[in-house]
Amino acid sequence: MLDPVARQRALIEETLRAVCPIRTSIVGVPCIFAPEQPATAVAAPAAPVAPSEGDVLRAVRELGLPSLRVHIEPATTTLVNVPTNLYAEPEPFERTLDLLGTPVRVRATPSSFTWHHGDGTSQRTTSAGRPYPHLDVTHRYQGPAEALEVRVDVIYVVEYAVGDEPWQPLDAVITAEGAPSALTVREAAPVLVQP
């Protein structure tokens, strides 16, 4: 049986072993506590990354630029060797996109039009054509045909502005393929009639 002083010392040492696993040899200091680990610094939120030209190009391609429907005069049937009038009606295109948390303004302007006549020929113009009596864009069909698919593809030049920065050109052109319109080409023969 331990004397009361030895029992008290044993109780204190047992308590210290439970509370303080690191002992010291310095007289009067029963143990050394491990220093607290510094709190992990929280990283400051990164500044938004400005979208690259490639990011803008990808976004515009995913968005898609407006395709145009070709208007044909006369409407669904024309005649061999008669000028058939073609025109389209482009509209201004401007959008604001959110890319990588940054607003990017995009605008697209038609720069040229490729007219596919449906008979294996095509032509490129910088004009969108106009309704009759203007004959800016015409085509003469050389022979009769049924259900030709006539369409116009638009080639756009695109500009973009990141945030409040000035407009800059996108170093790529984007083509929007138009939907086809059906056209029949007839052959007419002159007939003399009694007045």
Rank of each mutant, 00 (worst) to 15 (best):
R151K: 13
E53K: 06
D3R: 07
V173K: 10
Y132T: 10
P74N: 05
R124A: 03
E149C: 00
A108P: 00
S181E: 15
C20Q: 09
A41R: 14
G143R: 15
E36I: 07
P4E: 15
R17M: 02
P21S: 14
T15H: 11
E73S: 11
L99N: 02
V191N: 01
I72S: 07
E62G: 09
D55Q: 03
D153Q: 09
V19C: 12
V82D: 05
Q8C: 07
V173G: 13
L68W: 02
P21R: 15
I174S: 04
P30V: 13
I32C: 05
L170T: 09
E146C: 12
A172Q: 10
G28N: 11
D136S: 13
P195F: 03
L99F: 03
A189T: 12
Q8G: 09
F113R: 00
R17L: 01
D136Y: 12
E91V: 02
R9M: 10
E187I: 08
T125I: 03
V106W: 11
L97D: 01
E73N: 06
N85M: 00
I155C: 15
R58D: 14
I72V: 14
A182C: 12
P180A: 06
T138E: 11
G120M: 02
P30N: 07
E62P: 03
V185Q: 10
V154N: 11
E73Y: 09
T125K: 03
G143S: 09
T78N: 05
F113E: 00
V158F: 06
R130M: 01
D55C: 04
W167C: 11
Q123F: 02
V42L: 12
R7V: 08
L135M: 14
L11T: 04
T15Q: 13
G28M: 09
T175M: 06
W115L: 08
S111N: 00
L148Y: 12
L63M: 12
L68C: 00
A43E: 14
P131C: 00
T184F: 06
H139R: 13
T78M: 02
D3H: 06
P169I: 15
G178P: 05
R61Q: 13
E177A: 04
Q142M: 09
E91M: 00
V80W: 06
T96S: 10
R124P: 03
I32M: 12
A44T: 14
I72P: 08
V158G: 10
R151P: 02
V29C: 08
D98I: 07
A39Y: 15
Q168E: 15
R107Q: 10
E94V: 09
F33A: 11
V193G: 05
R107P: 01
A46D: 12
A43V: 04
G163Y: 15
Q37V: 13
A10P: 08
A179C: 02
S52P: 14
P103T: 01
T114I: 07
P30Y: 14
V27C: 12
T15S: 09
A75K: 03
P110Q: 02
F113D: 01
W167R: 13
P131E: 00
A147Q: 11
T121M: 04
H134C: 06
A161L: 11
G118T: 03
P38D: 08
